[in-house]
Design a protein around this nucleic acid. Sequence first.
DNA 1: ACAATTTACTTGAACTCTCATATACTTGGG
DNA 2: CCCAAGTATATGAGAGTTCAAGTAAATTGT
Lengths: 152, 152
Amino acid sequence: MSDVTRWLDDDEQRTWRSFLVATQRVHEALDRQLQRDAGMPHAYYMILVALSEAPGRALRMSELAAKAQSSQSRLSHAVARLEERGWVRRDRCPEDRRGNVAVLTDAGFAALEEAAPGHVAEVRRVLFDVLTPQQVRDLHEICATVRDTLER
Amino acid sequence: MSDVTRWLDDDEQRTWRSFLVATQRVHEALDRQLQRDAGMPHAYYMILVALSEAPGRALRMSELAAKAQSSQSRLSHAVARLEERGWVRRDRCPEDRRGNVAVLTDAGFAALEEAAPGHVAEVRRVLFDVLTPQQVRDLHEICATVRDTLER
DNA sequence: ACAATTTACTTGAACTCTCATATACTTGGG
DNA sequence: CCCAAGTATATGAGAGTTCAAGTAAATTGT
């Protein structure tokens, strides 16, 4: 951080604030829809998705954390809850006995299948339906840049 | 929601996922920086900013909730915490005795002044520094559209 | 071979947020 | 004027997240 603060000019302020409002509302809408219709927060949904796409519907905890955009601690707590619901099982890892493998159960997969249509509809409602195809392309480019800059 | 689900095609998937990763990382970075350097979450920072910009540095709770993008309940809890720290004071509203007015104290204003430079630096680091001027304009347009669509 | 370090994951406490409910005041009919 | 309905905010319980610390196993250096 430099000695003199470079404050945001008016344009930057407006951009920043609209970014904050928009992104917050999108995440809020997603969370609310999933909580209401599927009884899970969006973070849990992302965990189920990541598992469902993995070979054998199973992943080491640390890989799962990376794919589901979660901290290890957060994941650990979340998987504990998902396990209570019978949606995920935890197996000890044979080749590295420190490790755990989270496995999506059939019940978990079913819960995901049931939640998915409503979720996708919400994603369309809050984002794709309101943007032009060009805006979608621009947004992709912008987000990819930000994503790649902010490695963990 | 229609009978048949319109799933996201590959492009939409990629866009959506980069959006999720990018926005989550931005919000995470903001929260972490403010928590580490100023001892407050971003939501509290937004409350202080909203108050600092209001005439007399004071706002009714419901107006404050709107300006700080907070639910009323969330704001109520947050202001209670900010009050404990001496950064905000709550006065009863004279013309409507149901109402409360949150007032930013001098200590609160000082805390905001101290937090602001680091926060702005972080905002630049995670967003403005990595985007071209054209991308910033595009992003503004996109976010304004989403914001205006998703009224509360 | 074994102590020191690192890695993988879990745990507990503190905190924030959400949702449902409660309280206090105001307003609008009859 | 009084009662019903609405509005402004607070509160409490429950749930998720973070941070710091803890456990256990693998790896590294000597």
